[in-house]
Nucleic acid binder design. Sequence first.
DNA 1: CGATGACCGAATGAGCTCATTTGGTCACGA
DNA 2: TCGTGACCAAATGAGCTCATTCGGTCATCG
Lengths: 243, 243
Amino acid sequence: MNAPRDERAHRILDTAGALILRWGYDKTSIDDIARTAGVAKGTVYLHWKSRDALFVALLRRERVELLGEVVEQLAGTPSPATLPDLLKHFALAVLRRPLLKAVLLRDMSVIGKLARRERGDEARDRLQDGFVRYLKELRELGLVRADVTMGAQASLVASLMVGFFVAPPMMPKALSSSEDELADLLADTVRRAFDPGKRQSKADIEAGSRATRRYVEDALETAHQKLAIALSGPQAADEEVQR
Amino acid sequence: MNAPRDERAHRILDTAGALILRWGYDKTSIDDIARTAGVAKGTVYLHWKSRDALFVALLRRERVELLGEVVEQLAGTPSPATLPDLLKHFALAVLRRPLLKAVLLRDMSVIGKLARRERGDEARDRLQDGFVRYLKELRELGLVRADVTMGAQASLVASLMVGFFVAPPMMPKALSSSEDELADLLADTVRRAFDPGKRQSKADIEAGSRATRRYVEDALETAHQKLAIALSGPQAADEEVQR
DNA sequence: CGATGACCGAATGAGCTCATTTGGTCACGA
DNA sequence: TCGTGACCAAATGAGCTCATTCGGTCATCG
């Protein structure tokens, strides 16, 4: 809508992200953010009705960027998009976004007391719901083995993703490997773990590729809408009802 | 050596484990433990020279029990022992030992301030060293693919194990699957991820089985020695030097 | 001589004070 | 009309007190 206003909103989010990463959420005050962004404190409240709302907007923007990057990576290659590709690019994209990573891992030193809020990440729930639907499609297409329950498969994927972020810092230096190599191995592992054993038709592979892209693009679309609401002004919560 | 003395030591460790699990390490005093175990506080100091030493002994006992269980499981079947079998039984065994699990996951609500001690788990380092040697054997036997670096493979295993414990509590209830099913899938995943592609001779498989058993048995043996030291009396630290 | 519990200094933590900071508002001015 | 920063009530946290609890010791007892 309003270009300079949006530019300002993003500038505020930029500095908020930088400050929170450096000092942690608890130690970053609205005034710090406002002054560093070159605006007065009151101005921040022309965009968001509370500190938490600002943080929500910041996370939503990161999510849009993350999903956008994944969509881009999946589109960048002519070969069909697969689940392992998706997970690999997702993992690497998260790694490049420390704030999202901190939220994902509930890193108290960054997100402070927000780490233990009862109400878990609503966005993650949506992503997980979509993933289960997507996984179902792949199973029905014969691209993923169906002789294991979906719950176990979803848990396995979650384990691998969580482990991917948690385990490396715990490894001795002599054993640490590059992120890219580990991401490739992660993808290969999922490919093998979910391999149905049967041959797959080109048509089914293409359908799977479309499902993969649709899953991420839908998630991106939702993330976009959520972000737009969070950037629409201090009354954002009102629009939130219609989802 | 001394039967009634050892029996008492174990009784003290039993109650210590129960109390720490219920109230957390920080809130469990030596006096609590002593009274609940039916001895006087001074008696505890006839066994260990400090509170921490008692805790170390407790953990070492748990480790012996854990490894013993894994050895037993691997011995219980006539088929050759494989890496996936090992990981599966290890994972399930840890799950059955809340204290070890809490240490592994650095659960502050259980192990309290010990969670952030700089000096990481010495036992885990030993286990990891042994694992790398074991993994090397498997690769040389052609039982595990060698077209990926060992570091990446070790990280993958670590990721899977960590994820196995961390991820399930984060899953929505509708998706949660049984521990056994997930452990089986974990084992199958590692089997596929490490499959070298080439046929393996019966002799090599047998050699791998021996390597698997030897790895766990060696770890158990070391754990036993460490436990014996921790149970030998308040001067335990002196004997610790020779390692 | 092994076991005890009274005893000690140190650590803990609950409760309080009070100056500072913070989230959020709003009258004012550009 | 939009942006500002002075302003306010509430929250925070540093500093302190002080009773309690704790880890660890040791003279004493059975």
